[in-house]
Structures are given as structure tokens and as C-alpha cells.
């Protein structure tokens, strides 16, 4: 099967800055693909390379098997939902949504109907007469989505589309985006710096750092089996155990990751590995307590259910965890 988007050794340099540095990836048709990373990691540049706003310095890009280098954005059947929505301020919502159809020469009546259907799909029926300035951030986000989807793109690119929304709205939009993607069957490529968002929505995730893909895999892969310290750190503030700590456990390896929620306090069964340490800090985060423990210089963070009793600061406690929850990393 041809890939929806294919990158072969793609690089994009800005002067001396290697924004994207030899990236290989292949996104399958109908996939919900997330590109995750801190700002400046190259994920947005990758998205812009797919949209056609940037041209690769080096390498080869294909969209559904067709060469994309040198093809301007307006000849790519790919649409973007921009980070700050980029709605046309002088046009009504309906004209905004119908814009892509208008420039393609679709008749007035037909595009009006298509735009109204698209607005209904994003749950904004009857908003067509308003101007973008009269809408809230969440509503504008939906309009941007409708404006892209009305063109029936082969690939939909989303550049941190939920970044400007408040938490509750963001969670709601995550679910809606996911179900929309399922029902439409369009390939979604989603850029985000929020690991929770990537983990909950994506079929596969590419974790970016310094213009390179650090790891590419399913959310479970990325979360449970980080291959590098960067991925372990970035995806869910994992504990990275040093080789000295690992030696105490009888394991010889450079480093290993251990999720905060995989650690129990006080219990000590034979099959569990244990470490002892001093409680340094405790903070209440709602559903969980975050407890920081010092084990001979190795900081370990524990995420304990709020219902559990909280150890006092300075107390000596025993940490227990299963060998299976620990993941030895290929590189430190």
C-alpha cells in the first residue's frame, strides 16, 4: 500500500540551523499520526514540508506516491488547520469555510450547501453569517476544522490546533477530533507538544528532538518502552535510573526508565524489586499525590493515588516495583 506521506532522508536547513535533519517516516492512509516534541524540535517544519510552505533542503517527499518537492501548496490536496486558525477576518464564517471550494470554481449554491454541512459537522450550524471576530477561540477552532475538511483533503494537517483552548474544551475537542477522524477515514497528521494529547489521540507517535525523530511507535511503545533518555523524560516525566542505582538492583545497564505510577510504597513482595529512600517533597495534584524520594542521590518521583496515606517529609520509605515496569534503554 502506498503511504499517505513518505519522507526519505528529508532535511530542511535555515542557514546553519538544521530544523529538520534527515527524517525518514511513512504515514499510512487513514492513520492518526502525531508528531510530538518540544518547541524548536522540527515537528512544525515537518508539517510545513507536507503542506508545501517549506521545501526540503535535501531528501525526498511523497504524498500518496507522488513527488511533492517543488509542488506549491495550492496544488496539493492537503489542508492545514493552523495553530492560530488563520481565519480570514474580512469574510463571513460561511465564506471562510467555502473559500477552498470558491477558488476551485465550485458554484455558489453548491459551495454554500457544502459549507453549511461542514459547519453542522463541527456543531456550528447557523453560524455562517458571523465574522471570525465574533466567535470564541473554541468556535474559531471548529471553523478552521470545517474550512479544511470541506475540501475533502487526502491528508489533514493540524498544527497544535488545541493549544489555545482551555483544559475542558481541549479534552472535549480531543474526543471529537478522534471520532471525526474515524468517521471520515482521512489521514490526520497532528503536531503537538502535549504528550497527553498525543498519547490519547494518535495511532502512532513520532517523538522529535533537535530536528530528528527520537522514536517512532504506538503510544504504548513510546510510553512504556522509551528508547532514549529524551523520550523517557519528555513523554510523561519518567524516572531515569542511573547505572549505579541499577547496580544496586542487580542489573547492569547504562540507564533504565521507570514510570512514576508503577512504583508502590511500603509493600514488599518477593517478586518485586525494592529501593529505600528519604521523602523529600510531597505535592497534592488532585487525583494523585506526587512524592519525590531521594535514594542515595538518585531522585525518584512516585505518583501515588490520593486515597493512599501520604508519608511524612523526611520519612524513610521502601519503594517497590516490578522488573517488567522498568525499561532498559538502548542509549543513555
Amino acid at each position: 500500500m502506498t503511504a499517505a506521506v513518505l519522507f526519505q532522508k528529508v532535511s530542511r536547513h535555515f542557514g546553519n540551523v538544521r530544523a529538520v535533519d534527515g527524517v525518514d517516516l511513512s504515514i499510512a492512509e487513514g492513520e492518526f499520526f502525531a508528531m510530538l516534541g518540544p518547541s524548536g524540535s522540527g515537528k512544525t517544519t515537518c508539517l510545513r514540508l507536507m503542506a508545501g510552505f517549506e521545501q526540503p533542503t535535501d531528501g525526498h517527499i511523497e504524498i500518496f506516491g507522488e513527488t511533492a518537492e517543488g509542488v506549491p501548496p495550492y496544488r496539493r490536496n492537503v489542508n492545514t488547520v493552523f495553530q492560530d486558525y488563520a481565519l480570514f477576518p474580512h469574510l463571513s464564517i460561511l465564506d471562510n469555510v467555502a473559500y477552498g471550494l470558491m477558488v476551485k470554481g465550485v458554484g455558489r449554491e453548491e459551495r454554500r450547501k457544502a459549507a453549511e454541512d461542514a459547519l453542522a459537522m463541527v456543531k456550528l450550524p447557523g453560524y455562517g453569517v458571523r465574522k471570525p471576530g465574533q466567535l470564541s477561540g473554541g468556535q474559531r477552532q471548529r471553523v478552521a476544522l470545517a474550512r479544511a475538511l470541506v475540501n475533502r483533503p487526502k491528508v489533514l494537517l493540524l498544527d497544535e490546533p488545541l493549544g489555545a483552548l482551555d483544559l475542558k474544551l481541549r479534552e472535549q475537542m480531543q474526543e471529537e477530533l478522534k471520532s471525526l477522524q474515524k468517521s471520515l477515514g482521512i489521514t490526520f497528521v497532528f503536531v503537538t507538544h502535549d504528550q497527553g494529547e498525543a498519547l490519547s489521540m494518535a495511532d502512532r507517535i513520532a517523538v522529535f528532538n533537535n530536528g530528528k525523530i527520537q522514536q517512532l511507535g504506538t503510544p504504548e511503545d513510546i510510553y512504556k518502552r522509551p528508547q532514549t533518555r529524551f523520550v523517557a523524560d519528555f513523554v510523561g516525566s519518567s524516572n531515569v535510573l542511573s547505572s549505579a542505582t541499577l547496580a544496586k538492583l542487580g542489573i547492569s545497564a547504562g540507564a533504565a526508565s521507570l514510570r512514576p505510577e508503577a512504583i508502590q510504597i511500603g509493600t514488599s513482595w518477593a517478586e518485586l524489586l525494592t529501593l529505600s529512600g528519604t521523602v523529600v517533597a510531597c505535592s497534592f495534584l488532585g487525583a494523585v499525590n506526587r512524592i519525590t524520594v531521594d535514594c542515595d542521590g538518585q531522585r525518584i518521583i512516585i505518583s501515588a493515588p490520593a486515597a493512599m496515606p501520604v508519608p511524612e517529609q523526611g520519612a524513610n520509605i521502601t519503594l517497590a516495583f516490578s522488573r517488567n515496569d522498568m525499561h532498559v534503554m538502548e542509549q543513555a
Binding site: G52, F53, A86, F88, P89, Y99, G100, V103
Partner: peptide, 24 residues
């Protein structure tokens, strides 16, 4: 990004000028 949005939605440079740049 309005210019980019117009191109992204299929507007060629002349259309982007006519419908986005010039009115603004």
C-alpha cells in the same frame, strides 16, 4: 499565515491577491 491559508485551501497567487491580500 492568512496568505498561507489561502494557498493551502487551493488559492493560486492571483486568487490570494484578489480575495485576501487586496481586501485586507
Amino acid at each position: 499565515n492568512l496568505i498561507e491559508a489561502s494557498a493551502d485551501l487551493g488559492g493560486n497567487p492571483a486568487q490570494t491577491f484578489k480575495y485576501v491580500l487586496f481586501p485586507l
